[in-house]
Design a protein around this nucleic acid. Structure first.
Lengths: 203, 203
DNA sequence: ACGTGTGAAGGTCTTCACAGCG
DNA sequence: CGCTGTGAAGACCTTCACACGT
């Protein structure tokens, strides 16, 4: 899990240079055995006495998670959500830079928004091709999501992060990750209801 | 899964009044057996000849997923992300209404933003208590997330949807769901890289 | 003693296969 | 025949338990 790296990056001052699996487990909300197994899977091995060296571990995680060179990324849809994502992501991650934005709204296109140039939709293929973009973020309305992501895939994109509340039907060689706010909220409401129920049942 | 309902709500015109498990499975990207098992779990039973009645099925899903009465919800943090979420969620879901927003910024508080009244943070307990809010959305900076969600929990909130890229340590009787944009993006980039690798290895 | 690496057990979730019925 | 409901098998993931090194 990439969560380990995040936790290590803003590492607690307690972990000076070394960290034990149970500390990392506690910080990530998983079990210590899980951490050891995951770290073993990426080929890093720690010493029993001192635990894991944080610097060296971050290095191994980086080699495993990141591509050798930065991965250029694009975003489609610069509405409220797209804008929030842009301002949040720009210059945040050293290996995942947003290099282009796309929108249908002419008042948005051909300008630099949040530090990223915004292009009209019809130049999508051209730009994706020229910048060798391999990952795209979808922040467009649900009705346009399927069409836009097909354009991305046709232009060579191999990974898509979608915020649209629809299931995207794509070839198997494209990785899709969905972040569906509505469903997540329904899920939380459901879980909240059931935990409070079990609380009442077994007080 | 709540995905079924979403798919059924904007149901394809092909499914007039009835739907077969394999159609629903195709639309949601899962297997037909999975759909049948899930629908069985919520106690709905279809007929072999006609499949499932969409209206009746939606009814059963609603009884299972939703609370009998609407669940009041609050949001903390009305920055870029919070604003986008607000405008996206307000009046979207019949059973999950955002009834209050909270922010530290005085220029935001005591105004109505996106149709929702925004209160200062120090009135959080008072408002959550008065409105019987049981679910909260966190769109605050990572550093404040833990503190804010503890205030929510202390005020009686039992479910939290967090967008902050930190692990929240909370009592077990509180349901937490995280939507971490950065980690999701890293995951997509990683998967995109590995699928393109396997593509090259077995062409 | 304490923590890691790792085999083995245990549980959960998914898929297969088939009886039954319109 | 085709689709549902459901038991059985299987795959996957998590946890336990313990040998080894420091």
């Amino acid at each position: 899990m990439a969560l380990y790296r995040r936790v290590l990056l803003d590492r607690s001052p307690a972990w000076d240079t070394h960290v034990y699996s149970h500390q990392l487990a506690y910080a990530c909300g998983v079990s210590a055995a899980q951490v050891r197994r995951d770290l073993m899977a990426i080929g890093y091995t720690g010493s029993p006495s001192t635990g894991y060296e944080t610097e060296c571990l971050l290095d191994s995680l980086g080699r495993f998670l990141d591509a050798p060179e930065p991965t250029p990324t694009a975003i489609a849809g610069v509405g409220q959500l797209g804008g929030a994502l842009l301002s949040f992501l720009v210059n945040r991650h050293p290996k995942l830079g947003i290099v282009a934005a796309f929108d249908v709204n002419p008042s948005k296109t051909d300008r630099v928004l949040y530090g990223v140039r915004c292009y009209p939709m019809h130049r999508l293929h051209e730009i994706v091709d020229a910048c060798r973009i391999s990952v795209a973020v979808l922040a467009v309305p649900a009705k346009e999501a399927q069409a836009v992501c097909e354009k991305f895939v046709a232009s060579g994109v191999r990974g898509i992060l979608s915020f649209a509340p629809v299931f995207l039907r794509l070839p198997k060689h494209v990785a899709v990750e969905r972040l569906d706010v509505t469903i997540a909220l329904e899920k939380v409401a459901f879980l909240a209801r059931s935990v409070s129920r079990s609380r009442r049942t077994f007080p």
